[in-house]
């Protein structure tokens, strides 16, 4: 298990031959398009899992696969909606912020040894995009001046207090292992099968749990649960709702691809081209996330706080400590 340089990882990468591509406008546009595709694929997985498909039952599978497109079109056609004395500014900001943050988080996805925005703190970039959702979702719940929506907004904050620290420790563990906060360095450090998942399984699981929680998806859907008539979403219709739902799906899709890059070595793998490996790993992460998440009942924030602070937090700190000791021992090269 030796560490290879970033340049080598780039050449074994997805075959993005021309480096000038990465400094052009097309790279940014391409990443936005890619993030939208990730969101759509995730929504497909989700719709199939929600329908509770038994293997081979095409009667459910086919309509479920069409569901994300149909629901998206339905919202595009639908009328928007406004309540009495809402905070229009906050609503507009929030409704745009959710998809914008989701697409922004894709900027640090490492692709073939590059990413659109490669900073010395890519991991912090993702962390910041996700943390800003606190503001966005709270504004979303506050703006319509409706009681269920307001309860949902504060549920999201309570949930945030529980998932955020374990998630941050999971992200930092990746940085410690790679000795760098740059996403491309993280991928380079995993070349040759030295995937971080072997030494950081807890961090991977907590990262996925955090992704489900910050998109208030599946078992962490309390801020938009049925008991408060969809909470933060309860007063949204038409384009407004579409933007928020799009943002949630894209964010979860990008987080799946990010997990594939940070913990599963992105393009690293034998025989097949790197891009194939990256796609296969991303799909596997999505299938795992959706397959487990859609089998679990709702986790109320007040039930989750205990577990997050007393179990997940010590576990992730232990995970970071183990990785730090391994770094000292020269394990990661």
């Amino acid at each position: 298990m030796t560490r290879t340089s970033g340049t080598r990882a780039a050449t074994t990468g997805a075959g993005m031959a021309d480096p000038t591509t990465w400094t052009s406008v097309w790279a940014g546009l391409g990443v936005v398009a890619g993030a939208l595709v990730l969101g759509l694929v995730l929504a497909w997985f989700d719709a199939v899992a929600r329908a509770g498909v038994r293997v081979g039952s095409r009667a459910v599978l086919v309509p479920a696969a069409a569901a994300p497109v149909r629901e998206g079109m339905r919202l595009l056609l639908g009328q928007r909606r406004t309540t009495v004395a809402p905070d229009r500014l906050l609503r507009t900001l929030a409704v745009c912020a959710v998809p914008v943050l989701a697409l922004t988080s894709a900027a640090v996805l490492p692709l073939g040894g590059h990413s659109v925005v490669s900073t010395s703190a890519d991991l912090v970039w993702f962390n910041a995009a996700e943390a800003l959702l606190w503001v966005a979702v709270w504004m979303l719940g506050w703006a319509p001046n409706a009681v269920h929506s307001l309860v949902g907004a504060y549920r999201f904050l309570a949930q945030g207090l529980a998932y955020e620290l374990p998630l941050m420790f999971a992200i930092i563990t990746v940085g410690v292992g790679a000795g760098s906060l740059r996403a491309t360095d993280v991928v380079a450090a995993q070349a040759g099968g030295a995937w971080f998942v072997w030494t950081m399984p807890v961090a991977l699981l907590v990262f996925l749990l955090g992704a489900a929680a910050f998109t208030f998806w599946g078992p962490f859907g309390a801020p938009a649960a049925r008991d408060i008539a969809e909470g933060v979403l309860s007063e949204l219709a038409g384009l407004d709702r579409l933007l928020v739902e799009l943002g949630r799906a894209v964010f979860l899709g990008v987080a799946s691809a990010t997990a594939a890059a940070w913990f599963l070595g992105a393009e690293d793998g034998p025989v097949l081209p790197g891009a194939w490996w990256y796609a296969i790993k991303t799909l596997a992460v999505m299938a795992f996330l959706v397959g487990v998440g859609r089998r679990l009942p709702l986790v109320r924030p007040e039930r989750f706080a205990d577990i997050a602070w007393m179990v997940l937090l010590p576990l992730t700190i232990l995970q970071t400590a183990v990785v730090a000791v391994l770094v000292l021992g020269g394990f990661y090269g």
């Binding site: 899992a49 329908a51 509770g52 709702l298």
Partner: peptide, 12 residues
Amino acid sequence: LTLTGPAPTLRR
């Protein structure tokens, strides 16, 4: 189950 899910269980 409407309140807690999971969705496939509710459907069944």
